[in-house]
Design a protein around this nucleic acid. Structure first.
Lengths: 120, 120
DNA sequence: CCCTTGATCAACCAGAAGGTTGACAACGAG
DNA sequence: CTCGTTGTCAACCTTCTGGTTGATCAAGGG
């Protein structure tokens, strides 16, 4: 199951699990409550929750025979950071390209050295 | 393969594919170039690219027998929007809870009716 | 003290994912 | 024209995933 980030992305790749997260963002809920709207078995939902838990997106506390589930929203930031990093990079590259094109139209004496990325 | 958002999340759930995206954020590249650093077959990388393409994260143009791959960074915004939406929701809920606790410590005349979420 | 409620565990199954190898298609260079 | 380069397609294999059912456990309520 590889790394943390992979687990988080994989966890949210399933529509049912995304819906669970959406509902848990409103309020904590028990497994039974969560399972009600779907027409799958409660065991299936329990498995989904285990996946979310494995990704750190959710925690379960113990309360009598009930097991209320709680959304750990901070983990979402991990993803946002990853995504934004590369979106920004791509954007900058776009800008650089624009600059380059502008320069080609209006050559100003020196040509600045272009570093091509060796992304390990 | 269900919906768009699922495809995007699933695409990024694989470390190799995330690395491809990272490298493509720096510059477009051919399949061969992209495959070089990994010790899997070029066909495997081609498959990965097909997944990324299916998610709309990448496009391939045709250039002689070469097929340069280009990152379509806008799709990343889709994810960011989804994530931020629920992170924010969870945060607001937290704030509301804080407010509630504060109120309980300092009761002011009337008791406002508390609606507990019947999250259908 | 039973037995209902809430949830997990275990075994199983079908299908998707990620990898492999081998064949083939498209194009440019000699 | 033929050959090497660049990639894709197709078939196959193994592992992971999401679902099922049946058994079991833990905690109250009668």
């Amino acid at each position: 199951m590889s790394d943390r980030l992979s687990r988080v992305f994989a966890a949210l790749a399933d529509p049912t699990r995304r819906d669970l997260v959406a509902r848990l963002s409103v309020a904590d809920a028990t497994v039974g409550d969560l399972a009600a709207p779907y027409d799958v078995s409660i065991q299936a939902v329990s498995k989904h929750l285990k996946v979310l838990e494995g990704a750190g997106l959710v925690s379960r506390r113990k309360e009598a025979q009930r097991r209320p589930v709680h959304l750990e929203a901070e983990v979402l930031d991990l993803m946002t950071m990853w995504i934004e990093r590369y979106r920004r990079q791509a954007e900058e590259r776009f800008q650089r390209l624009d600059g380059l094109l502008a320069e080609m139209n209006e050559p100003t004496a020196d040509t600045p050295p272009l570093e091509e990325g060796t992304a390990s």
